[in-house]
């Protein structure tokens, strides 16, 4: 046998490769079974980037289903609440080019929360059933109200309301929510040479 291998180097090389392939194949096969990961880790990562408003504007019943769809190759620009920042984060994660938000699914808007005009509420519980995050409090024939801190602003409660008493109002920006803006780079045309300016530079 050994003599045969020595005398036929090509055959022995092929044999060696075959054996190596079989051995690694067995290891990989074993690993695939014993270290099998339940669920798709990429779905969780995508889901972590999605804003969890559960608004369904992407056409899927919630953020998780959309995350699964993205993992299966759906477009990443169907999430208006996530906006441009969300698309960029997804593009970074999936290593694809960022694309503009698909207008078909809505436009990026300021953060809003639902308010129930409580005097008009008839207590039908329809909005409670529609709320994906249980942010509406109430009982049959009792007035309902939105827990503002829990509301994701998905506006799914607006449509089912038979008396149309739910408003989507932008979140107030008081002095606490206020923040500095980035300086406007275009306001000071700094990229022209000083001598090209119309006016001399202020001392």
């Amino acid at each position: 046998m050994i003599e045969f291998l020595f005398s036929h180097p090509i055959a022995s090389a092929l044999l060696a490769l075959l054996l190596l392939g079989a051995a690694f194949g067995a290891v990989l096969g074993f690993g695939a079974i014993s270290f099998k990961v339940e669920g798709d880790p990429i779905v969780d990562q995508i889901n972590a980037i999605l804003p969890q408003t559960q608004c369904g504007q992407c056409g899927y019943p919630g953020c998780k289903p959309y995350a699964e769809a993205i993992a299966n190759g759906d477009a990443i620009n169907k999430c208006p609440p996530g906006g441009d920042a969300g698309i960029h984060a997804l593009a970074d994660l999936l290593d694809v080019e960022p694309i503009a938000l698909d207008d078909e699914h809505g436009v990026e808007d300021v953060r809003k929360v639902a308010y129930i005009r409580e005097a008009e509420c008839i207590g039908c519980t329809k909005c409670i059933q529609a709320c994906p995050v249980d942010a509406i409090l109430g009982a049959a024939k009792q007035m309902h109200t939105v827990i503002v801190s829990e509301c994701t602003g998905c506006d799914l409660c607006v449509e089912p309301c038979p008396v149309d008493c739910i408003d989507m109002l932008p979140v107030e920006t008081g002095t606490r929510a206020w923040s500095w803006n980035l300086p406007d780079a275009h306001q000071n045309p700094a990229d022209i040479i000083a001598s090209d300016r119309d006016k001399p530079r202020a001392a």
Binding site: L50, P51, Q52, C63, P132, V133, A135
Partner: peptide, 15 residues
């Protein structure tokens, strides 16, 4: 936002 998203996710999952 991330904290709120996490919270919303928990509530959604619970629901």
């Amino acid at each position: 936002d991330m904290q709120q998203a996490e919270y919303a996710k928990q509530r959604f999952d619970a629901r």
